[in-house]
């Protein structure tokens, strides 16, 4: 069972409330697809929403007219979604990327590291898939904002901590790190950021302004 590294209570709470930015919610949904503890935690906090809904004073409305409108649509109401193709990937992710990760148009960013940008669908956030070859490392970097990473397949380690499939990592501007894929095979991750990364080291300082310009435009 995976899920040794869980998202913070703040993220769980925002997801229960419905206010978590969608790309972060995607990362959490991937995590929860293999973590029943966090699914249960969300369920417990959703009760807050039930209490809040229950306390609300009823708003003025023409209830009978709206009821008639609803009743007349009941028969057309189609039932549940069509079943989706079986896949190793969580469904939340399959709605955003094609199922076969190997066939994505990966863009090389460093030796053994490639990325695939998922559409830039919420202002200020970027979501991308990372493919890190066994033993390869992401360039050493820190962050200008928050970074949320969830492991889709394989594993990486970061400062001696190992992240396996389903594990969730949060980093902010206080964290400088260099994630490295373990020897166990290719590591795929989903990484969500709300500001460009800041590369460290001599080469990093050289190419950082270029990355930054690209990320901002």
């Amino acid at each position: 069972m995976s899920g040794q590294h869980h998202p913070s209570l703040e993220i769980i709470g925002d997801y229960a409330a419905g206010s978590l930015p969608e790309p972060v919610a995607l990362a959490l949904a991937v995590h929860m697809s293999s973590c029943s503890a966090c699914r249960m935690a969300v369920q417990k906090l959703e009760v807050i929403g039930g209490v809040v809904l229950d306390e609300l004073p009823p708003a003025a409305m023409d209830t009978e007219a709206e009821l008639d409108r609803a009743l007349s649509s009941l028969d057309e109401a189609k039932s549940a979604e069509s079943p989706s193709e079986p896949s190793d990937l969580p469904h939340a992710l399959l709605r955003r990327v094609p199922g076969d990760l190997a066939k994505l148009p990966w863009r090389r960013v460093a030796r053994g590291v490639a990325e695939f940008a998922i559409d830039n669908y919420e202002a200020g956030y970027r979501a991308k898939l990372l493919r890190i070859q066994s033993g390869a490392s992401v360039p050493r970097h820190t962050h200008r904002g928050e970074e949320y990473t969830v492991v889709i397949a394989g594993a990486f380690y970061d400062s001696d901590v190992v992240y396996n499939k389903g594990d969730f990592a949060e980093a902010d501007p206080t964290v400088r790190h260099q994630p490295i894929a373990t020897d166990g095979g290719v590591c795929y991750c989903l990484a969500v950021t709300n500001a460009p990364l800041k590369l460290l080291g001599p080469i990093g300082r050289l190419i950082d302004p270029l990355l930054r310009r690209r990320a901002e435009h």
Partner: peptide
Amino acid sequence: FRHFAPRIKG
């Protein structure tokens, strides 16, 4: 519907 609709609207 009669119970929940006005709360959902609120």
